[in-house]
């Protein structure tokens, strides 16, 4: 396991695009939350934004907002996996002595590492915003709702596993990105609203993974209450993640490289 991750890191760490992506990710995150500082919007004489950084809801709020930045991470996953096909190094790695399972395991470990990394980052951003941007006197530090950090991790890993599958299936970078976005933005909504019975829709993979962290913003606009996550979606998400990894394994095992 350790060796497989080391091999992946030897490929990754000298890769400039990786550092560019990391820096972009960190800057985007920091920038957004700094810019939301003292963000106030007055709609129909209701002030919003003021509670955004208050514990304990901040765990939920920041997990939700940052989950959108993860598109960058999913594109990066597609990039490094399709790179291996484009450079024909996935083939070379097997020739050199990796089994196909090991080749996949290396990538899964990398996705785990990415997911852990972003989760830790989100945790740090949450703490920083909570302590420095909000009034902790009236809303003291709290670990309530920290489970959203865990859900964020599962969501990141789950959607990454989907990106990994698409990249392994299609092998081409452009096509993979189009298919990945196309499924999320067009494919699944069509399935959900046009083809499948109503109650099935929320168990579609991207829907289930997406709803792990439900959108908290409408509540701030006085549109309903702050939603809670549903345990059945957690179960569905874990199953989809396992399924996507298994499908990647099947694709790698059965095809010529």
């Amino acid at each position: 396991m350790n060796t497989l991750l080391k091999i992946e890191l030897k490929k990754l760490l000298p890769y400039r695009s990786f550092w560019a992506a990391v820096i972009a990710y960190v800057l985007m995150m920091g920038g957004l939350f700094a810019s939301l500082y003292r963000f106030k919007l007055n709609i129909n004489s209701v002030d919003i934004g003021i509670n955004f950084y208050y514990f304990p809801d901040i765990w939920h709020n920041i997990a939700y907002i940052t989950s959108w930045f993860n598109v960058l991470l999913y594109f990066f996953v597609i990039l490094i996996v399709t790179n291996e096909y484009q450079f024909r190094t996935v083939r070379q790695n097997v020739i050199d002595g990796l089994s196909r399972w090991q080749s996949l395991t290396g990538k899964i470990l990398l996705l785990l590492l990415f997911s852990i990394g972003t989760t830790v980052l989100v945790g740090l951003v949450t703490l920083a915003c909570g302590f420095f941007l909000a009034d902790t006197d009236s809303n003291p530090f709290s670990l309530e709702k920290i489970e959203y950090l865990g859900l964020y991790f599962i969501q990141t890993l789950g959607i990454s596993s989907f990106a990994l599958l698409v990249a392994n299936l299609l092998r081409k970078q452009g096509m993979s990105i189009i298919a990945f976005l196309g499924y999320i933005l067009i494919g699944e909504p069509v399935l959900r609203y046009r083809l499948l019975p109503e109650s099935w829709g929320e168990y579609l993979p991207m829907q289930a993974l997406g709803q792990l962290i439900p959108n908290p913003l409408p509540a701030y606009f006085n549109l309903g209450t702050l939603p809670e996550f549903q345990p059945t979606l957690l179960l569905a998400s874990l199953m989809y993640t396992a399924l996507f990894f298994a499908a990647s394994g099947w694709v790698l095992q059965s095809r010529d490289l």
Binding site: I7, K10, P14, F87, T89, R91, Q92
Partner: peptide, 17 residues
């Protein structure tokens, strides 16, 4: 077949690993 962005040494380090 090698990683185009890696040097000779780094590429061989991957093979060695």
């Amino acid at each position: 077949n090698f990683y185009p962005y890696l040097s000779a040494v780094k590429n061989l380090e991957v093979v060695a690993a």
